[in-house]
C-alpha cells in the first residue's frame, strides 16, 4: 500500500511543480522571432536590457526573417524582426490579422561574402561581374582566370567552388539578391530578388540561418556564401573585399557600411534599399533591419514594455551594436524609429 502512496505523492508533487511554476513564471516576458541577421546584436542587447530591467525579459528566437513575419502575423510572438519591411501581400495579411503594423528600423549591418579557400590568406578581391558569375554558376573553380586576374600575387588552388546559401526564408538573402540584381541583369531576369530564391549554381548547399551558413562555410573547403558581418568576424571566416560602383575595392567594416548608409539619409518601410550605393569608401551590400509591432496593443502593460524596450534599443542600446560589428543607427534614422514608436497605442 505504501507504494501506492508513494506514487500518489509523486503525482501530487509534480502537479504542485507545474502549478507553482505557472505562478512563478508570470513575470513579464516578451517573445520575438525573426531575422538571424539581427541575432548577435539582439541577443547581446536584450541580455543587457534584462540585467537593467529585471521585469522585462526578452525571448528572441533567430528563425529567419520569413519566420518572423509569419509568426508575427499569426500573433504567436509579440514582435517580429525582418531585414526587409513587409511587402504589400504580407502587409495585407498582417492587417487582416490584427490591424495596422508599425515598422521600426533597429539596426544597420553589412552582408559579407565569406569563403573557405585553403592556402589563401588575407581578403580576396571580387568585382561585380566575378561575384555574379560565381553565384550564377558560371565560374566554378577558385583558380578561374577571372578571380586570378583580380588577385594577382595570390596563389589560388584548383578547387571547385561550392555556393553556400540559406535554406530558410531570409532577409539576408533578400539584401544579397537585391545587390546581385542591381549588378547583374542576368541575375535579375533569371533569379531575381527575394527572401528565398532558386540558386542557379550547380554545386550549392543550403543551411538554416546565418549561423548555419557560417558553419557550413567553415566546414566546407571551397565554399563561398553570404552572412552578416558579425557572423564572419566572430568566427574568423575569411571574407572578400568588393568593388563598389565608384570603382574601389572596399572591405566590409563598421565604417564602410556607415558610409553606404550615409548616401541615403532617409529611409522608410517603403524605400529602404541601400545596396550598391556609390560614393568613396562605401561597402556595396548593406541594409537596415526592422522590427514589426502592432499599432494597437491589446495588453497595455505589454505594449508599454515593448515601446520602452525598443526606445532604448534604437538609442542607448545602439552602443551594443558596434560591440558586435553592427553599425549604430544614423541620427536621422533614430528619429524615424522614434516617430514610429510614438504612433503605437497602448
Amino acid at each position: 500500500m505504501h507504494r501506492n502512496r508513494f506514487v500518489l505523492g509523486l503525482t501530487g508533487a509534480s502537479l504542485a511543480f507545474v502549478l507553482t511554476s505557472a505562478i512563478a513564471g508570470a513575470a513579464g516576458q516578451l517573445t520575438g522571432a525573426g531575422s538571424s541577421f539581427d541575432f548577435p546584436f539582439f541577443s547581446r542587447a536584450f541580455y543587457e536590457y534584462g540585467k537593467q530591467h529585471a521585469d522585462v525579459q526578452v525571448n528572441y528566437q533567430s528563425i529567419g526573417s520569413g519566420g518572423g513575419i509569419q509568426q508575427f502575423t499569426a500573433k504567436t510572438v509579440d514582435f517580429g524582426a525582418s531585414d526587409v519591411p513587409l511587402n504589400p501581400n504580407e502587409m495585407k495579411a498582417a492587417q487582416a490579422s490584427n490591424g495596422d503594423v508599425v515598422q521600426v528600423p533597429v539596426t544597420l549591418g553589412g552582408v559579407v561574402v565569406a569563403y573557405n579557400v585553403q592556402g589563401v590568406a588575407g581578403h580576396l578581391k571580387l568585382d561585380q561581374q566575378t561575384l555574379a558569375g560565381i553565384f550564377l554558376g558560371k565560374i566554378t573553380n577558385w583558380n578561374d582566370p577571372a578571380i586570378a586576374k583580380l588577385n594577382a600575387g595570390t596563389t589560388l588552388p584548383s578547387q571547385a567552388i561550392v555556393v553556400a546559401h540559406r535554406a530558410d526564408g531570409s532577409g539576408t538573402t533578400y539584401i544579397f539578391t537585391d545587390y546581385l540584381s542591381k549588378i547583374s541583369p542576368q541575375w535579375k531576369s533569371s533569379v531575381g530578388t527575394a527572401k528565398t530564391v532558386n540558386w542557379p549554381a550547380q554545386s550549392a548547399i543550403g543551411a538554416k540561418g546565418n549561423e548555419g551558413v557560417a558553419g557550413l562555410i567553415r566546414q566546407t573547403p571551397g565554399a563561398i556564401g553570404y552572412v552578416e558581418l558579425a557572423y564572419a568576424s566572430q568566427n574568423d571566416i575569411s571574407y572578400a573585399s568588393l568593388k563598389n560602383s565608384a570603382g574601389q575595392f572596399v572591405l566590409p567594416t563598421v565604417d564602410s557600411v556607415r558610409m553606404a548608409a550615409s548616401q541615403k539619409p532617409n529611409v522608410s518601410p517603403d524605400d529602404y534599399s541601400i545596396v550598391d550605393m556609390g560614393g568613396a569608401g562605401s561597402y556595396p551590400i548593406a541594409g537596415y533591419s526592422w522590427v514589426m509591432l502592432w499599432k494597437n496593443q491589446s495588453d497595455a502593460n505589454k505594449g508599454k514594455q515593448l515601446v520602452g524596450l525598443f526606445r532604448w534599443l534604437v538609442t542607448d542600446g545602439q552602443t551594443y551594436a558596434t560591440n558586435v560589428r553592427y553599425v549604430g543607427l544614423p541620427k536621422n534614422v533614430q528619429g524615424e524609429a522614434d516617430r514610429a514608436l510614438a504612433s503605437i497605442k497602448t
Partner: peptide, 14 residues
C-alpha cells in the same frame, strides 16, 4: 516549446 534564452517555467510561455 520554441526555445527561450531566459528563465521561464510558465507553462503558457515558450
Amino acid at each position: 516549446a520554441f526555445g527561450n534564452p531566459v528563465w521561464s517555467t510558465n507553462p503558457n510561455s515558450p
